[in-house]
Design a protein around this nucleic acid. Structure first.
Lengths: 181, 181
DNA sequence: ATAGCAATAGACCGACCGGTCTAATTGAGG
DNA sequence: CCTCAATTAGACCGGTCGGTCTATTGCTAT
């Protein structure tokens, strides 16, 4: 069985939202890219664009958590994990196209219901930080250090990605570990 | 003589773009907020929304450079300057409303003419970094260290602002200096 | 005073927006 | 085979978008 219609819509939406932001993409554009009619969208996402955006953000969140876990799974030290993570992100940045932004920011900082969206972005971001913190602790950092390291890592991730986007240069992400330690 | 019509339009646009992004704000909304008719806009900005966005971004850039220079002007050490800068930014974050984003990103990562806009964002961002680097050198850092410190500072600024926005918490910016040193 | 240009004012336009609704199609259970 | 619900398909809607155009106002130089 191939990918479900619902997933196809959500993935297509996630990709386009990352490129142009919530308000920068029209439903017709998403549907054309997915090759689906409007009826399917409103069948699977009764609340239209809002539901679609939330699902796309959830998808992007899971994907990012997966990437973080992947990077640290094979690492023997925290530093090593950080380095692997940023190299993976640099690859991802190139793959997505260097004009792409953070999916969560692009989707959830705009849109209707600003507070609901914003709250969700905080949940996701703090989830990433908690996830990193867990790996740091597992790899031998003290709890206090791990908390701080995780926050630093997240902040560098956001900042470096922004700079990489402006300069269209994935090396901004590859050089991030040097800045962190 | 009071503020010119052109400036009023650009400032109003800058504020709204920061809150909702380039595609999230309509011209009518900007004009209503500025209390001006459409004719004025197209008189002062013949290319409409595009010109207005570029002018708003230029305004925001100058403002940020001013803030950076202010913070470091009275500083006796680089660290001291960094601390002052982040406290100023935390204040600004509260003043603008905690849903506000980086003006440059919000305006220049979206919009038409993606490449022209993106190039300009790179120019502004690298200008900020160069500006910080200058202060670092003036305050006794070596050139190599200054370059790296400036980049780290910029990255932290972007990352912390994002986290502050998600969590609606200006303290994310105030705590930034601790993460940097 | 008035000629002439800069600026303000807003009606108006086609295109596209997100969203609704009805019809056709599909596929699993009886 | 037939039924019937799930899904796909897309025409259609009012509203808003960015942008154009004409008229009027205000100011300045002569």
């Amino acid at each position: 069985m191939s990918i479900s219609t619902k997933d196809k819509l959500a993935w297509t939406a996630a990709k386009l939202f990352q490129e142009k932001g919530f308000d920068g993409v029209g439903l017709n554009e998403i549907l054309a890219a997915a090759g689906l009619p409007k009826g399917s969208l409103y069948h699977h996402f009764p609340n239209g664009k809002k539901d679609l955006a939330l699902e796309a953000a959830a998808l992007a969140d899971r994907e990012m958590v997966r990437i973080i876990n992947d990077a640290f799974a094979s690492a023997e030290t925290y530093r090593h994990g950080v380095s692997t993570l940023f190299h993976k992100l640099a690859k991802l940045f190139e793959l997505l196209g260097s004009h792409t932004g953070c999916p969560i920011s692009e989707i959830l900082f705009a849109g209707p219901d600003r507070n609901e969206f914003r709250t969700r972005s905080a949940t996701y971001f703090n989830g990433w930080i908690a996830c990193i913190e867990g790996h740091a602790i597992r790899l031998g950092e003290t709890e206090a250090a791990a908390q701080q390291q995780a926050e630093r890592l997240f902040i560098s991730l956001q900042g470096c990605w922004t700079l990489a986007r402006a300069n269209e240069d994935s090396d901004q992400l590859r050089r991030a570990p040097e800045l962190l330690f």
